[in-house]
Amino acid sequence: MTPGKKRLSYSYYPGCSLHASGREYDISTRALFKALNVGLKEVPDWFCCGATPAHNVDELLSLSLCAKNLSLAEEVEGDLAVACAACFSRLKTTQHHLKEDDTKRKQVEVAIDGPAALNKPVKHILEILAREFGLAKLEESVKKPLMGLKVAPYYGCLLTRPPEVPELDDCEDPSIMEDVLRALGAEPVKWSHRMECCGANFTLSRPGVVLKLSNAILESARIAGADCIMVACPLCHGNLDIRQKEIKEAYGAPDSTLFGNIFGSELHGGSAPDQRDIPIFYVTQLAALAMGVASESLGFESVITDPKPLLRDKQLL
């Protein structure tokens, strides 16, 4: 982006999830950018990036889907803002792959009937907030600091991996979410599972795996004393939010939790395990809330694990 006084402005690729199960991520992103006076123009006629199944089935197809979307985005001014971690990962991976592999690039260019937009900068929302808008300015813009809210920042597996592809932060020890949370006035907790996988690829095929992995994440957030979890991916959100009840049913009894044999008795003195609800927020929901955007327009009513009691408790509603 050009430095200076010029108003920041981005082209925007929402991705399918943000128009469906992750609708609240989309509306909170738009609300946040409006509140920050940052331009956001949706790429016309965009379509699915192919995450998560395409790249497991047909590499050329998955690369072509993203390449076509990138060339559509090229028509809209401004770097390409992406909210969904999976779309972000696929778009970045495509650029990385095609830059490295000339043969594939040529194949893809035949498939999409045009040049692949390898140099269109693709930016994740977090990157825009922390680096381009800037942490200092973000902190200044806060109208309602998220005081006393203990948030477990959850990166998941796609946001920073594999190394060299997303170029977002350190691959195994990132801090961008923590930085953003601090700027918003919230308290990021230190916890163990911020980089683990929630099992998104197995959502339909092996839900048992998803329950196990997502339970470990929720359990770990509770142990760390978090009130809620912040995510930047609609797939993680889906697993952690929608399945929370299912997870409790599957892993509810003491000692049957993933960490039961390790931590159950020792840390909780043998008492029943912590079963608190853990609301799951999108980074844009928390940020918009801190910017003073009305909570009604952030989609809190459409999530399963109701965040309102927590927000009321912390006097943020």
Partner: peptide, 9 residues
């Protein structure tokens, strides 16, 4: 693949 501190373990 990964190691992390949990309590004193």
């Amino acid at each position: 693949s990964r190691m992390y501190q949990r309590g004193d373990k």
